[in-house]
Design a protein around this nucleic acid. Structure first.
Lengths: 143, 143
DNA sequence: CTAATTCCTACTATACTACCAGAAAAATAT
DNA sequence: ATATTTTTCTGGTAGTATAGTAGGAATTAG
């Protein structure tokens, strides 16, 4: 499994926030309820997004979170790389991985590099805006 | 990480066997030594490849393993799906996964489906023959 | 001051990864 | 028949990662 729930939830959080943007901050409680995800778990995920500068947090009454950029500027590859650490399909292609001593003779390395590129290219070409419901108010169309 | 050592080793085993094919069976000991992988661990991986019909085992003296098809007919996607169970990037796209109750409203599902397809297409377009060294005898070119 | 909210540290249960050990079963050579 | 070589099978284990949970400190608004 390339992507854990952490990465999946991160995207859902960001799409949810993008669809419910106002001038005010959005609280985690709201998001957790709408998305039906444990608030405590969301907290740990959002904190990583804050660290990476994708969302900003504001403490205290009236506080919450807001996106740091418009949804069309938030790259899905960046988000997933934040939560997952790396999107590399194999360990030897992760950034900061120890170089493999067999690399020179490795018959499979080119294959893995190609797969890595395909994944990077696909995820890098998607934004949060691409995932938003394009309807008049962002709500679901219930028949 | 999409692919564990199991999947990576499986490919190395198959390429190794393809490059050292004769009329005889190839023993695990040989492969393990050449690839510098624990023989016991290889055993468990190869057994899965046998079950799937990718290689065939022969017990007893003179026994070992051989490929069931020529390398150009062994699809890398099939091999990896055997060892990894599934190549789906997220759980809800694995074959046999319980259908997600949020699927109808899911903003991210199309993204995941697209990623899944990109991965399937890439891995499905590669064979063991594509990974073999094309030199005269399959050995490494040292200098 | 009080309430609401993020931020931070630490813990836990479960599952998965990457193996290892030992023996049974089968085939071959002598 | 016996010894030898090989796969096949069962059952472990230490370490790491996943998916959370618990509790409280820090900060801000009213």
């Amino acid at each position: 499994m390339l992507i854990s729930t952490k990465g999946r939830y991160a995207l859902r959080i960001l799409v949810d926030m993008a669809e419910h943007q106002t001038e005010n901050y959005i609280t985690l409680q709201e998001v957790a309820q709408r998305q039906d995800i444990s608030e405590k778990y969301l907290e740990s995920i959002v904190r990583e997004l804050v660290k990476k500068g994708i969302v900003a947090g504001q403490r205290g009454k009236g506080g919450g979170y807001r996106l740091c950029a418009p949804p069309e500027k938030i790259n899905v590859g960046d988000v997933l790389r934040t939560t997952e650490g790396s999107l590399a399909p194999v360990a030897c292609l992760s950034e900061g991985a120890a170089p493999c001593s067999r690399a020179a003779q490795c018959r499979t390395l080119d294959f893995w590099r190609g797969l890595n590129e395909v994944i990077e290219r696909y995820t890098g070409g998607f934004t949060i805006a691409d995932m938003m419901r394009k309807g008049p108010d962002g709500d679901d169309y219930i028949i």
